[in-house]
Nucleic acid binder design. Sequence first.
DNA 1: CTCAAGCTTGACGTTTACGTCAACGTGACC
DNA 2: GGTCACGTTGACGTAAACGTCAAGCTTGAG
Lengths: 157, 157
Amino acid sequence: MADLRRPERTYTIRQLCIEFKVTPRALRFYEDKGLLSPAREGLNRVYNYRDRARLTLILRGKRVGLSLAEIREILELYRVEDGGVAQSAKMLKKFSERIVTLEAQREDIDHAIESLRDACKHLEARLAKTAPDMLPQAVNYDQALRARLDGVHEFAK
Amino acid sequence: MADLRRPERTYTIRQLCIEFKVTPRALRFYEDKGLLSPAREGLNRVYNYRDRARLTLILRGKRVGLSLAEIREILELYRVEDGGVAQSAKMLKKFSERIVTLEAQREDIDHAIESLRDACKHLEARLAKTAPDMLPQAVNYDQALRARLDGVHEFAK
DNA sequence: CTCAAGCTTGACGTTTACGTCAACGTGACC
DNA sequence: GGTCACGTTGACGTAAACGTCAAGCTTGAG
């Protein structure tokens, strides 16, 4: 059976939407904003391997709090020799700054995780005392963990 | 000289705004949304030590991508015994899920940082070859680093 | 007393990132 | 040949998180 992700493979808008759990509207929006530019087959959009890779980067960027405009700037670096020297210098500066803010953000996240873990411990202790029968709810934690290890990001509601 | 952050100290809205680099509008907005509830002196808001601590948490939450509504939920945990057992169980679940997403986010950030570092290296190499005189721009990186170590987050524009 | 500084409460505007129709085209079945 | 399923392009709506006035109170300096 052929690899569904082999480089020559193409995707319809719906296929990408399902894979990345986004809506067609979102993909068209990214296109409007210049973050994607899939080929056309008649009217229909045809996404290729590189479009898919870009989408991966777009969504990752979003998850770390970048705006679409910022993501666009970053993606444009990968356009070969897009700008002159001045452009490169500007980019270098921007990227450096961005790295610093991301590192700060990582510290914030570490703090937040720690706080939440602490809060969980307190909650668990409280539940263990007053209502041990409610503790199976804590199974959700393991569920989430397993899901994460499997690369699945859908949790039971 | 008295410690400007001693527990009994109070703050005007402007003082907090300057310290945390936010606008009065933002603080009033957070109040509208139930995240803050400073005392009043006549009409004027008077923030105390705990209000200031809450604001720290609010901004940290924002930096890691939480919505104000989510931050509000988390802050309410710290209201003593606010809910019954069911409430605690619900919170435990929510917090556990949040921890998982934050850990994923941290990985995203690590990836992003790595990518950006890589991009910077390429840019630097390119500049070193074509226009070594533009490289002093890279000083911005050190500037940013120093600023960060000093706890200052304002960069030259 | 006046007047500016700093606070207040509305109330409307703005940006970002889409959601949600409406109206239409185009194969592929039955 | 009707009718899905899936695609398209507008165009308008929306939620979050404030920005930006307008209009008014209060209080200390001159």
